[in-house]
Design a protein around this nucleic acid. Structure first.
Length: 487
RNA sequence: GCUCCCAUCGUCUAGAGGCCUAGGACACAUCCCUUUCACGGAUGCGGCAGGGGUUCAAAUCCCCUUGGGAGUACCA
């Protein structure tokens, strides 16, 4: 196999799923590591479920994750088109080739007839395999059926291909991640490759496309293992070179079922909307099944590419746990430079009037509130007290803090002193230190002193650094809020 | 039902017969730091699914059981 060419072939029947993103990542890594090409192909043969919005979402998500493709619908390439619906005229030709060399035949069975066969099989507790009853139809019989208005589907003659290319009914291949995989192909029925409406089925379209696009390595989820045996036989029947396959374990939800909507976000775009950074998401997903040789888990995609070996990827399923993703996301947020963070936070601050703050104030606000952010959207509930003249006091805060005698005393004294202070951070820092000292002598803990002020100014008992908060709000707002808290 | 895949702390994993008294990360707990929350630092808790083999030696190899996952469409 001369050039390494891998592909990701999502079906646009939904937004880009994190599982697909991981598969895309491993393909991308494999291409990078082996100096190969990464191609994107859109598998939209099922017009019913396809939509342009999903296609756009797939493009955008992949780009946001930094998984740029060398060939694809938008960038083109030598082996296009890269959208299956634009390739519909290609498939019949290859189906005809299989019809001609006897590895496929026309099937006129109706859905009802097929359903009946299945029922009999299940009644006898047998695995269903197509009866092959159309395999040897004579030209006259076919003509009669066609005259009745029936349109044939084309089935692949699996046992014939198996016999032609393999000594026994067992087919095996060496999987890049799982090692030798085998299967008795007698268990597969002759499956349809061209539907009666003239469009190809998945198993046929992929093979034709991968063959024509000269895909050398197919890395995909293990849900495709059984398809692989069928596909290998098609390659052989077509006289094509069979690519190498590698099957990845699946990503499961914490309850070990398939990751679905009810577990929360599943699409990359949904994670982004929730405030996850794509850098964190892709890093996290890389660690599902792969681990760095140096033990350093925080890595960019390019760094991972250098260290990546497909044979090292775990062959078992892995569970998508938010704990580690969250940790990783908070880590990436910490690494963001302030200007970038300010921009990324804006979508989560739309309920506030940012024009109340100068750029310097906004910068400072972000600096002092960024520390505990796990996801970007956490900012929303972290900053309400930086906006508006007054502030909403939480009931418990009113009762447990503001209503106490100590707090009232602190606030009265604060109001008296602070009106002469310059509200600049360094100065406030010194002033507050002295202020705390005064109360400490009266037996009031520094913590209590600060709590009173914090409660009056922010309505909460926890939040950003107090000195910075006071400076950002300015003397007017602070004193107004303090006065209001005094009984 | 049938077929296939998988099996190390709660989770992601390191581990390719002796380096394993099983290592790391996340989570959790405790302590330290501290004007709150947090961050950070330190320590701790916690696992080879079970049973048989093979071998001087098994988390590592084989078999069975169990558990989990996937496939079984004129969906992809």
């Amino acid at each position: 196999m001369s050039e390494v060419r891998v592909r990701i072939a999502p079906s646009p029947s939904g937004n880009l799923h994190v599982g697909t993103a991981r598969t895309a990542l491993f393909n991308y890594l494999f291409a990078k590591k082996n100096n190969g090409k990464f191609v994107l192909r859109i598998e939209d043969t099922d017009a019913e479920r396809t939509s342009q919005a999903y296609i756009d979402n797939i493009f955008d998500s992949l780009k946001a994750l930094g998984l740029n493709w060398d060939e694809g619908p938008d960038v083109g390439g030598e082996y296009g088109p890269y959208t299956q619906s634009e390739r519909f005229d290609i498939y019949p030709k290859y189906a005809q080739m299989l019809l001609d060399n006897g590895f496929a035949y026309e099937c006129f069975c109706t859905p009802e007839e097929l359903e009946h066969e299945k029922e009999i099989a299940t009644a006898n507790k047998q695995a269903y395999v197509y009866s092959k009853k159309c395999e040897h139809l004579t030209p006259e019989e076919k003509a009669k059926l066609i005259a009745e208005g029936r349109k044939p589907a084309i089935r692949f003659n699996i046992s014939k291909a198996q016999k032609a290319f393999h000594p026994t009914s067992e087919l095996s291949f060496n999987d890049l991640v799982k090692g030798e995989l085998k299967q008795n192909t007698d268990l597969f029925g002759d499956f349809v490759i061209m539907k009666s409406n003239g469009t190809p089925t998945y198993n046929f379209a992929v093979v034709v496309d991968d063959m024509l696009m000269k895909i050398s390595h197919i890395i995909r989820g293990e849900d495709h293992i059984s398809n692989t045996f069928k596909q290998i036989l098609i390659y052989e029947a077509l006289g094509a070179e069979v690519p190498k396959f590698g099957h990845l374990g699946m990503i499961l939800a914490p309850d070990r079922s398939k990751l679905s909507k009810r577990h929360g976000a599943t699409a990359v775009s949904e994670f982004v909307e929730k405030g996850y950074l794509t850098e964190a998401l892709i890093n996290f997903v890389a660690l599902l099944g792969w681990s760095p040789s140096d033990g350093e888990e925080i890595k960019t995609v390019d760094e991972i590419a250098k260290d990546f070996r497909i044979g090292d990827v775990s062959s078992s399923n892995s569970i998508f746990e938010y704990d580690k993703l969250n940790w990783m996301n908070s880590h990436y947020i910490k690494m963001l430079d302030i200007e970038t963070l300010k921009e990324k936070l804006k979508p989560f601050l739309t309920k506030y009037d940012l024009s109340e703050l100068t750029d310097a104030q906004y910068t400072r606000m972000v600096e002092v509130t960024r520390e505990p952010l796990v996801i970007l959207s956490d900012i929303t509930d972290a900053v309400p007290y930086f906006f508006g003249e007054t502030v909403e006091i939480e009931p418990e805060v009113q009762r447990d803090v503001l209503d106490t005698e100590v707090s009232q005393e602190v606030l009265k004294e604060f109001a008296r002193q602070a009106k002469d202070w310059e509200f600049e951070e360094e100065n406030l820092h010194e002033k507050l230190e002295v202020f705390r000292g005064e109360f400490k002598e009266k037996g009031i803990k520094p913590k209590q002193t600060m709590w009173a002020i914090r409660a009056a100014v922010t309505g909460r008992t926890r939040g950003a650094d107090m000195t910075a908060t006071l400076a950002i709000l300015g003397k007017d707002k602070v004193l107004k809020r303090v006065e209001k808290a005094i009984k």
